[in-house]
Write a protein that binds this DNA or RNA. Structure first.
Lengths: 196, 196
DNA sequence: TTTATCGCTTGACATAGTGTCAAGTTAGCG
DNA sequence: CGCTAACTTGACACTATGTCAAGCGATAAA
């Protein structure tokens, strides 16, 4: 199960999946396409992953590890005050989005039909929401949260505002520069959440 | 082509499609399900609509007519100043979203795979964006647009903020009351777009 | 040197949903 | 009576996922 060769192939599959999902035509990310990209047969894929959903979940986790998401988000927890923390969290997450975009899109596409994919994606979303909540609570502790908001709704809004779909719309469809996106979202978040 | 009976069946199909898309389990909106709901055979559907995509497009247009979207959005154009216009447009659109949600979700689900569905949905989106643009330009004419923004980016942001996905997240997933959603989005839009 | 096992291949097949095709039925109408 | 429009039934092609079975080659253990 965990021989060198098997592990090596597994990595090649995950890389191949990522490459296809990130490519020009992400519709060419069927099991056969990914297998071909990895240089193995379609059936061999199923020897490593029981389903497309599981493969995508593994690919997402793989990306998390490669890009050390934990560390990135950790940094925002180190901020000394609520505002810095908000900025740091937004910057950390918003700059990770472009790198998981391919995988995210695949999950979003599968959600309506695939129960398991929907669950996996929601789970990841929950983690982001957790970060939003922490940022909002930090603001609240500093008595910096605009009294128009309760912490629950503020978290909801921030989370929605940081969604992959929002990023997709602004950066991919409206051609915002990534940097402009991050700056603008930070500015708006502060403007909306922080007491005047 | 335009006999009474044929037109009547067509309406029944559109109603049936809408009902299924809006139902508890919208995955049960396959061609067979919709046909059954309309009380005809699956094949008869294809006598009226050449494809599922075309059926959805027709359903969306049907809803637009039934709910008189043109009139609703017209009202926002009558506002005397930019701020009123922004409020009116947001209220008009945001209160229409719940009624097209089922159809919207179906389009969103088909987008990644179906070229024609993607085009049709983007076309509808363009219309909303047009409304956003008009509202932003009205603000700009009143010299009320925050100088942080140029009109293009302000339009982009407002459009993203009013997306169906955003509504879905806040109202369906986070359990906001529709009224609370509308009020909050209006408040934020003003806070973000209007010069201090 | 034989034997077993692991990782993989090839090819056939089940399933679900869309869309096509062909032949037949039924109701209304001149 | 016979025509036509609207619809039915049933078979089929296609695509993508996922399953199953048989076989093959290299490596490692007896």
């Amino acid at each position: 199960m965990s021989s060198d060769k098997s592990q090596d192939t597994r990595s090649r599959i995950l890389d191949a999946a990522w490459r296809r999902l990130e490519s020009d035509d992400p519709r060419k990310s069927r099991m056969g396409d990914i297998a071909k990209e990895a240089g193995i047969s379609r059936q061999a894929l199923y020897l490593h992953f029981p389903s497309r959903t599981e493969l995508l979940v593994a690919t997402a986790r793989h990306l998390d590890e490669v890009h050390k998401v934990d560390l990135r988000l950790e940094a925002s927890r180190a901020a000394t005050n609520g505002i810095e923390r908000l900025d740091a969290f937004i910057s950390a997450w918003a700059n990770y989005v472009p790198q998981v975009y391919g995988v995210a899109r695949a999950f979003i596409a599968m959600m309506p039909t695939d129960e398991a994919a929907a669950a996996a994606w929601k789970d990841r979303q929950r983690a982001v929401r957790q970060g939003c909540k922490a940022a909002v609570l930090a603001l609240h502790r500093d008595d910096m949260l605009d009294p128009e908001w309760d912490t629950k709704c503020a978290t909801d809004w921030l989370w929605a505002h940081l969604s992959v779909e929002n990023w997709e719309r602004l950066v991919r469809e409206c051609d915002w520069e990534q940097e402009h996106y991050v700056d603008t979202i930070q500015r708006i978040a502060k403007q909306v959440l922080i007491r005047k």
